[in-house]
Design a protein around this nucleic acid. Structure first.
Lengths: 114, 114
DNA sequence: CGATAATATGCCTTGACAAGCATATGCTGT
DNA sequence: ACAGCATATGCTTGTCAAGGCATATTATCG
């Protein structure tokens, strides 16, 4: 999770991700559109690949990078755990639903009461 | 958006946010629970406050920090724009349904009614 | 097999930022 | 106003990561 945040916290990497939202692109294509030098694009893509945000598909002599679902899904799941904070619908009488959802995931919910 | 990612990319800040999910806490309380020195806690809270992730409420001589909805909501909205990438239900032939949902406005999409 | 295009990697420099520690500021009760 | 606790800020140091540039790697085609 933190890795994903770190990857997206870098401005140029964020721009790359935004660009790839419209579909896979080659390294040079990305560099041209975002006005970045090729080596830096490759490096950023490496970071994005390491955290699973993109995957590579060789196409002829170039490599097409495209977004991957998994980290985005993970981000969504993470955010779900904060729903009671940001979603208005959870602030009122939906406490019951919250309880149910908490039961569904028994991961790190075991907190010590004092 | 990038600011939010950057704030959450720092391990200790992430831990603070996770801790605050269960409710507002004072600076020393946070420091004690996460085993952090008080100055670093204050600094991290400053960053979190600057990006709007927390707000302060003075309580006696201590300050209680608690999570704020806005950046989390923004994060959710941002993620929504990638839904077609990560949400399986968007990958197939549900394009029509997407149109319908957008029109219905029942989902958590587009609730900004400024 | 050379030539060339597309991409990756290595090295260096520089800037940002987190931790540690000392100290300042602020609030509360007496 | 003073003492004492809670929190904030300033300064220094060390680490890490991004950009720039040169160069290595890989693939395609003649």
């Amino acid at each position: 999770m933190i890795e994903t945040f770190a990857a997206l916290a870098e401005p140029n990497r964020y721009r790359i991700v935004e660009l790839l939202r419209s579909g896979g692109r080659s390294v040079n294509d990305i560099g041209a559109r975002l006005d970045l030098n090729q080596p830096q694009v490759s490096k950023h893509l490496r970071v994005l690949k390491d955290v699973g945000l993109v995957r590579v598909e060789p196409r002829a002599q170039q490599r097409v990078y495209e977004l991957q679902a998994k980290p985005l899904r993970a981000l969504n799941d993470w955010l779900d755990r904060y729903r009671r904070v940001w979603d208005v619908r959870f602030n009122a009488l939906d406490e019951l639903l919250v309880e149910l959802e908490n039961n569904k995931e028994t991961s790190n919910v075991r907190k010590k009461r004092k």
